[in-house]
Design a binder for these strands. Structure first.
Length: 565
RNA sequence: AGGGGCGUAGCUCAGUGGUAGAGCAGCGGCCUUUUAAGCCGAAGGUCGUGGGUUCGAUCCCCACCGCCCCUACCA
């Protein structure tokens, strides 16, 4: 951490270590504060673009310093934010402002600048809101106006003055004194188109946030969604916990993990693919209602719906089952939609999602429901439940799909009945679930952590919630029979494959042996939920810094390393 | 991984097989209530990178790099 009492001579007067590469032309020297000069020595050829402006602004910074200003001052005390002023005085008339004439001190980033001769206007932006300032030479004086001249778009300043309205009736600050706060050595994106290059928006999110209101709103909304979720669960007696991100065994989901290494212990660890097994240990420990909002990491593809690290809310509730959760979810999604967007009807792209009700379908019903008419008579529930029934139905579906050019179900290796059912559902029904839908009764074969249905052990008490064709939640009555759990884990391990655990999580079985209450648990994908509630078509629009390939220019991978041939 | 698209000034975008264009930003000048401020002037580019075709390539061809979209894997 940086010392908050920074400002003592030692810190400032020490020449900066060149360290072999600096982007600055001028290196500061060990002169005392306020009288320091720059030395123009090229330290390294590395520079940020645009170079002319970078250099120009460095020169201006020196000139500002020459005016007696600290180039990086430690303190500015403000009385109001731009947002607060707009909020409070947005409707107040000029004469009323004149009558009050309260002294205010406001800070912000300069986002527009109109300078004319001996006066000028600018807009200060703070927390996404802007207020205009008016700077007049007569008022701020020779030096103050000189400082004003040296300001660029992007600089941070503070002002002292009072509110008034201009000829065009815009609420503005009549500036009596200017305070330089920080220099933008690089220019902001273009002022009315903003930043549209998506790559730049993701790589340099800070510019996106400065330039694009829409973007800052999305992330503010994301924060509110998480707040709402915490409120919802806190009000129901849950406690929030944090469980390990580094796991000795990657469990709790079927996914390829990231591998890392701890030096002192000399062990490989996996970045967690799910917090599930740890949270359930906590229900064993007597935390009857727990939740965690945190990251999961899966070493898999990147798409508009997938980022290698993503945020999940997971929660567990003792003495409940999946029916209780389904009911709770209907409430939760409706409340969220209402509180976040103002309505339970939410616009998403070209469609409107209605969160006031959720249709419920069993997986087998969904297959029937979305079975294409041209593919013949849909399979009966009895057929789908019978041995090899799902496989037979899939063959019939594939026959049609291949003829019509639709995606067909391609099985890798031999599948069990439950796997066929899951595959068929994913192939033909999943992307049709546009309106919020609770899909329930998943095959046991693809639900290794769920309790079976007492009347049909081939199915489990598990559901998923689909919205706009995306899976956003996954919950079930948790399997708490240690013998059955061990059997299913061993079956997974025997099955093999990159996505399956390699090792039995013995401690988890031991925990279950100490007794886990009947519990229902669920995970909700926060990123996807945020997409839905902010009308964002890509997951990268709701993740501040989505994973991208590292920028070229540093050590480039292929060219420098490619001597294998 | 496969298919499609994109890459031109710091930003937003035009454009052409024959010396590269605008607006904004930046620079110099004028301007004391402007607001996409205005007016005058000057500057700014390895047209993603590397090959090839050509008398000549930013443009055509190939490869590579990066990003976006779709499909596959996945939540």
């Amino acid at each position: 951490m940086r010392d908050s009492r920074a400002g003592e001579e030692s810190l400032d007067s020490a020449p900066r270590e060149a360290g072999g590469s600096s982007v600055f032309l001028a290196q500061r020297t060990g002169r005392p504060l306020y009288s320091r000069a720059f030395e123009f020595e090229r330290i390294s050829p590395l520079q940020f673009e645009p170079r002319d402006q970078f250099e120009q602004r460095q020169k201006k910074l020196q000139q500002i310093e020459a005016l007696g200003q600290d180039p990086y001052p430690r303190e500015f005390r403000w009385t109001d934010t731009p947002a607060a002023l707009v909020e409070r005085y947005g409707q107040t008339s000029g004469p009323e402002l004149e009558a009050e004439k309260r002294e205010i001190r406001v800070a912000g980033r300069i986002v527009s600048l109109r300078l004319m001769g001996k006066a000028g206007f600018a807009h200060l932006q703070g927390s996404g809101k802007q207020i205009q300032i008016y700077v007049k030479k007569d008022v701020v004086g020779e030096k103050g106006f000189e400082l004003f001249h040296l300001l660029d778009l992007g600089d941070f300043i503070g002002v002292r003055g009072h509110l008034f309205r201009t000829k065009t009736n815009e609420l503005s600050i009549w500036v009596e004194e200017l305070f330089f706060l920080s220099k933008a050595l690089l220019p902001l994106p273009e002022k009315w188109h903003g930043l549209t290059d998506v790559e730049l928006r993701y790589r340099q999110r800070y510019l996106d946030l400065v330039a694009n209101d829409k973007s800052r709103e999305v992330f503010a909304t994301r924060a509110r969604i998480i707040q709402e979720l915490r409120r919802f669960f806190d009000a129901r007696g849950y406690i929030e916990v944090e469980t390990p991100m580094m796991h000795p065994i990657a469990g709790g989901a079927a996914a390829r993990p990231f591998i890392t290494h701890h030096n002192t212990l000399d062990v490989d660890l996996y970045l967690r693919i799910a917090p599930e097994l740890y949270l359930k240990r906590l229900t064993v420990g007597g935390f009857d209602r727990v939740y965690e909002i945190n990251r999961n990491f899966r070493n898999e593809g990147i798409s508009t719906q997938h980022n290698p690290e993503f945020t999940m809310l997971e929660f567990y509730e003792a003495y409940s089952n999946y029916r209780d959760l389904m009911d709770m979810n209907e409430q939760l999604f409706a409340i969220l939609a209402k509180n976040i967007t103002g309505s339970t009807i939410v616009k998403f792209g070209e469609i409107e999602l209605d969160f006031s009700k959720m249709q419920r379908l069993s997986m087998r019903e969904a297959i029937q429901r979305y079975w294409p008419g041209e593919a013949g008579v849909p399979p009966s529930l009895a057929e789908l439940a019978s041995p090899s029934g799902a496989q037979a139905a899939t063959s019939r579906y594939n026959l049609w799909a291949k003829q019509s050019g639709s995606p067909y179900a391609a099985a890798k290796g031999s599948l069990s009945d439950g796997e066929w059912t899951g595959l068929l559902f994913e192939t033909m029904a999943e992307d049709k679930l546009i309106q919020p839908t609770i899909l329930y009764d998943f095959p046991t074969d693809i639900s290794p952590l769920s309790k079976q249905k007492p009347e049909d052990p081939s199915l489990t008490e598990r559901f998923e919630i689909y919205v706009a064709g995306m899976e956003v939640a996954n919950g079930f009555s948790e399997l708490n029979d240690p013998a059955e759990q061990e059997r299913r884990f061993l079956a997974q391990i025997a099955q093999g494959g990159e996505e399956m655990p390699k090792q039995l999580d013995v401690d988890y079985i031991r925990a279950l042996c100490h007794g886990m209450p009947p519990t229902a648990g669920e995970g909700i994908g926060i990123d996807r939920l945020t997409m839905l509630l902010t009308d964002s078509p890509s997951i990268r629009d709701v993740i501040l810094f989505p994973l991208l390939r590292p920028e070229a220019g540093g050590e480039s991978s292929s060219t420098t390393e490619a001597h294998g041939a």
